[in-house]
Write a protein that binds this DNA or RNA. Sequence first.
DNA 1: TGCGTAAATCGTAATGATTCTGATTAAGAA
DNA 2: TTCTTAATCAGAATCATTACGATTTACGCA
Lengths: 140, 140
Amino acid sequence: MILTEAIDMLKVNGYKYTDKRGELLRLFAESDKYLTARDVQQAIEEKFPSLSYDTIYRNLSVFAELGILEYTELSGEKRFRFACDVNHHHHHFICTECGVSKDISLCPMKEVSGRLSGYQISGHKFEIYGKCPNCVAQFG
Amino acid sequence: MILTEAIDMLKVNGYKYTDKRGELLRLFAESDKYLTARDVQQAIEEKFPSLSYDTIYRNLSVFAELGILEYTELSGEKRFRFACDVNHHHHHFICTECGVSKDISLCPMKEVSGRLSGYQISGHKFEIYGKCPNCVAQFG
DNA sequence: TGCGTAAATCGTAATGATTCTGATTAAGAA
DNA sequence: TTCTTAATCAGAATCATTACGATTTACGCA
């Protein structure tokens, strides 16, 4: 997904375009990191110093619902990143220091679903945590 | 793990045994469900109507640190269940209705770790969500 | 271009989970 | 039994998240 697609996605679904939404989306489009609402607020502070926290939250939720952002929960916080290839299901390594993520194309669900007859599967989560090479170099 | 082992584990690590800790552990030992602190409070209310919420929290953390309980986060809440076979690494299906869990012995990390050279892996999470057969029958 | 309406944003407050504090109680060693 | 220290308690503080009512703004339409 790219920025213009994300903006189209907004409009197609009846949401209005605002400079603030644009800036939020740009921030995610330029990064492969998982960000918390607080991260976003800090990153965007220069451009929109008074952007309401509530506005950030609501918009992150909207974006995630539309599939523009991917979403996970880590140590008690919601985190978001720009959606990768929507057509190719995959998972992520997530750096616990900086939030940067790396695609893991492998998905273990193929082998698992056969073992769960009688169960109604609604979702799954496969995430790997640790330090990315940058953070290993920086923090050891 | 069984209840008596869990209690030994407490003592070996220098923690005192109290009736309340005993009751907390018994509650988990008799269930294969993931429970929130609130769930625990309700379940234990009959026996200890005035057990402090803080006490529950602290103890769940202690138990998890000692490996007596397994821990996960789901929809913004910490959840705990009695540790299964400590010697056999595995994952869980978790029912989003009732919290009941089922072992999934498969672990995808074997295939993945080779793809992450340069990364320092500290942990991973593989969980499957949905409804257990009971809840499918009950709620559809 | 200017208007009107519904949506977006704002500032603030409410909520809910989690953690902390300082006082009191009780487990377990001597 | 006594003593020391950990455990528990009640209540408050903290933090993430969500809700509220008022104000502002995007954008369809004249």
